[in-house]
């Protein structure tokens, strides 16, 4: 699939406009300028990432030099330290907690938001714009203001410090953007495809499985990925509503930064280690991100 896309892209590049020589020259100059700008911005953007990666791979004394010593010998000792070789606390329980919360809430968001977005995009709902705006209003209160009431409810229900509570909260946190985002993608699915399926007697479930989900898959994958990332690095709710049994990776990381804050290499190693699951998810998703809707469906 990727190969196919790359070949169409290559075709696009080869079939550049040949209408006039002066136009071609201007286009080429512009391409060169844009290429340089791309590299500069790319360096500014990726520079800090490279700095973090190098710092995490350097020994603490080499990491502390300024300007950073780029060619110092590399070592994995900071990572070893993070995973508990020398200090007592193991990062695995919070990593597992975070994984359960992020995956659980992302799945729940998909289950809830795909039908809702479908109804709002394709099926006529009276006052649907009010419903959409209602989804927005849940994103308008400062997060801290919601913390106290939620803490009290969770305490009453005995849900404090449980993975389930965080799954529900993260689901609610991500549901509005998921519904809005999916709705904008579902609205692009041609109606005649859906109608054709219904004329052929496909039920709601079959329509979802065979038509909506395959056609809108880039949107669904992107939405799932952002929900996963938002839950993965949420700190405020987790730091207040979880403690010893269900504390999350960001909570662990901030306590790690507080205790090891002056040790730059350890902090960088911990940050990169904690972002690894997101990178794995991103790498797994990026292939699917570009398949998706081929409008050949309506031909």
């Amino acid at each position: 699939m990727t190969a196919a896309i790359e070949s169409t892209d290559a075709r696009r590049i080869r079939s550049a406009p040949v209408s006039s020589v002066s136009l071609r020259g201007r286009e080429r100059r512009r391409t060169v300028v844009l290429g340089i700008v791309a590299w500069v911005v790319g360096l500014i953007f990726f520079g800090p990432i490279v700095w973090m990666l190098l710092t995490s791979l350097h020994s603490e004394s080499n990491a502390a030099t300024n300007p950073p010593s780029l060619f110092a010998p590399l070592t994995l000792s900071s990572y070893a330290n993070f995973f508990g070789a020398s200090s007592g606390a193991s990062p695995w329980p919070p990593l597992i907690n975070s994984a359960m919360m992020s995956i659980g809430s992302t799945l729940l968001v998909l289950v809830l938001s795909i039908p809702a977005a479908y109804a709002l995009a394709i099926r006529p709902v009276k006052k649907w714009s009010d419903v959409l705006f209602f989804f927005l209003t849940t994103k308008m209160l400062p997060m801290v203001a919601g913390l106290l009431p939620l803490y009290l409810i969770a305490k009453t229900l005995g849900l404090l410090d449980t993975v389930g509570l965080m799954v529900i909260l993260y689901t609610a946190m991500n549901l509005p953007i998921a519904v809005w985002m999916m709705r904008s993608f579902f609205a692009e699915v041609p109606l005649e495809v859906i109608e054709a399926a219904q004329v052929d007697g496909a039920g709601l479930l079959l329509t979802f499985r065979r038509i909506i989900i395959p056609l809108a898959s880039p949107g669904i994958i992107a939405t799932a990925l952002i929900c996963f990332i938002f839950s993965w690095n949420e700190l405020l709710f987790a730091s207040v509503l979880t403690s010893t049994t269900s504390y999350t990776a960001p909570v662990f990381l901030t306590s790690f930064v507080t205790s090891e804050g002056l040790f730059l290499s350890k902090v960088c190693a911990a940050s990169i280690a904690i972002s690894l699951p997101v990178l794995v998810a991103g790498f797994a998703a990026q292939d699917k991100l570009v398949q998706g809707l081929s409008l050949g469906a309506i031909k």
């Binding site: 990432i49 973090m52 804050g261 904690i274 972002s275 990178l279």
Partner: peptide, 17 residues
């Protein structure tokens, strides 16, 4: 994939770095 790194690190830690 690499482009996701900045976003994947919790903001509290980003601010510290």
């Amino acid at each position: 994939t690499a482009i996701l790194v900045p976003w994947a690190i919790p903001t509290a830690v980003t601010a510290k770095l």
